[in-house]
Amino acid sequence: MSIQHFRVALIPFFAAFCLPVFAHPETLVKVKDAEDQLGARVGYIELDLNSGKILESFRPEERFPMMSTFKVLLCGAVLSRVDAGQEQLGRRIHYSQNDLVEYSPVTEKHLTDGMTVRELCSAAITMSDNTAANLLLTTIGGPKELTAFLHNMGDHVTRLDRWEPELNEAIPNDERDTTMPAAMATTLRKLLTGELLTLASRQQLIDWMEADKVAGPLLRSALPAGWFIADKSGAGERGSRGIIAALGPDGKPSRIVVIYTTGSQATMDERNRQIAEIGASLIKHW
Rank of each mutant, 00 (worst) to 15 (best):
V8L: 14
V8F: 15
A9K: 12
A9N: 09
I11L: 08
P12F: 13
A23Y: 04
P25K: 10
L28V: 11
Q37A: 15
L38P: 07
L38W: 06
G39M: 10
G43D: 00
E46V: 09
I54V: 15
I54L: 14
F64Y: 06
P65S: 05
P65M: 02
M66Q: 06
S68D: 00
T69W: 00
A77V: 11
S80I: 10
V82T: 09
A84T: 14
G85Q: 10
Q86L: 13
Q88F: 13
S96V: 11
V101A: 11
E102K: 08
E102D: 15
S104F: 02
P105A: 06
T107I: 05
T112A: 13
D113W: 07
G114R: 03
V117P: 04
E119R: 05
I125E: 01
S128R: 00
T131S: 12
A133I: 00
N134I: 04
I140F: 06
P143I: 05
K144R: 14
K144D: 15
T147Y: 04
A148K: 14
L150S: 06
M153H: 10
D155H: 01
H156W: 11
H156T: 12
V157N: 14
R162L: 05
R162S: 09
R162I: 02
E166Q: 13
N168S: 08
E169K: 13
E175V: 15
D177S: 02
T178W: 01
M180S: 15
M184Y: 09
A185N: 01
T187I: 08
R189D: 08
K190Y: 12
L192C: 08
T193A: 15
T198Y: 07
L199I: 15
S201K: 07
R202N: 06
R202D: 03
D207I: 10
W208V: 02
E210L: 08
A211R: 14
A211W: 08
K213A: 15
A215W: 02
A215R: 04
P217A: 14
L218P: 03
L218T: 04
L219W: 04
R220L: 03
L223Y: 03
W227F: 08
F228D: 03
A230C: 14
A230Q: 02
K232L: 00
S233P: 05
G236T: 05
R238C: 14
G239K: 02
S240Q: 07
I244R: 00
I244P: 00
A245E: 00
A245L: 03
V257D: 00
V257L: 09
G263H: 07
E270P: 03
E270R: 11
R271A: 11
N272L: 02
R273L: 12
A276F: 12
E277D: 12
E277L: 11
G279N: 03
A280H: 13
I283A: 08
W286C: 01
